[in-house]
């Protein structure tokens, strides 16, 4: 009899210990997995969100836009045009196999271009990107002719990781709105294609020391 009682009390103790251990494990799990947290919230949100009507489609984007030939996770998206921002487009106005009767024409037209692209081991040349035969277009290494508005295709042949991020939204930026029709900046809206790295400069402002 006494032994039985001892056994029962031991059992009770063990059960209590198991519960205590379980309690700690579960508490730990909820704390670290962040259940109920914002990560859980967004992971559960799989229904498409219709934000097209949030922003007035008539709101003018100040730039001309062009439909990108690639689709992102949400479908179609647009980017800024390039051709209308090139000062001397069309290039074939001068590059047309006729004599230019002006001294130093090349220097006047393109003297400001410094080609700092591709590093020291493999610096790029003009015709790495520009099409020699038709100057209004670009050309990839494989010989695919590319429109100036769709320069992302050309840049993407080397910078494929950046291109993937750009299509998804981790590289580059949207224009003006987070909602509505997706309009992003083109590669050349931010980078100078001839020297794509941002120049060193002074910051726009400074921070006041705290307290």
């Amino acid at each position: 009899m006494i032994r039985d009682v001892m056994n029962i009390s031991r059992c009770k103790k063990n059960i209590f210990r198991i519960f205590a251990a379980l309690f700690f494990i579960l508490a730990g799990k909820t704390a670290y997995c962040g259940s109920g947290g914002v990560i859980e919230t967004y992971k559960n949100a799989t229904a498409p969100f219709d934000d097209e009507k949030l922003v007035d489609p008539m709101l003018s984007f100040s730039d001309h836009l062009v439909l990108v030939n690639i689709k992102y996770q949400g479908g179609k998206f647009w980017t800024r045009t390039r051709k209308d921002k090139i000062e001397r487009f069309k290039c074939s106005k001068c590059h047309n196999n006729q004599d230019v009767n002006r001294p130093e024409a090349a220097k006047i037209a393109h003297g400001d271009i410094r080609l700092v692209h591709g590093g020291q081991e493999k610096p790029l040349q003009c015709f790495t990107c520009h099409n020699k035969d038709d100057r209004d277009f670009l050309v990839t290494e494989k010989g695919v002719i590319i429109d100036m508005d769709h320069s992302y295709k050309l840049c993407g042949q080397c910078h494929f990781r950046q291109k993937k991020d750009w299509v998804g939204g981790a590289h580059g930026k949207r224009v003006s709105y987070w909602a509505g029709k997706r309009v992003v900046r083109n590669c050349t809206s931010c980078h100078n294609p001839h020297s794509p790295r941002f120049k060193k400069r002074w910051p726009a402002t400074y921070s006041h020391p705290l307290d």
Partner: peptide, 17 residues
């Protein structure tokens, strides 16, 4: 372009990407 902003509940948003 270091800053990305968007709707967390929208599966197609940049922030979710």
């Amino acid at each position: 372009g270091a800053r990305v902003f968007g709707n967390l509940l929208d599966p197609k948003s940049e922030i979710r990407f």
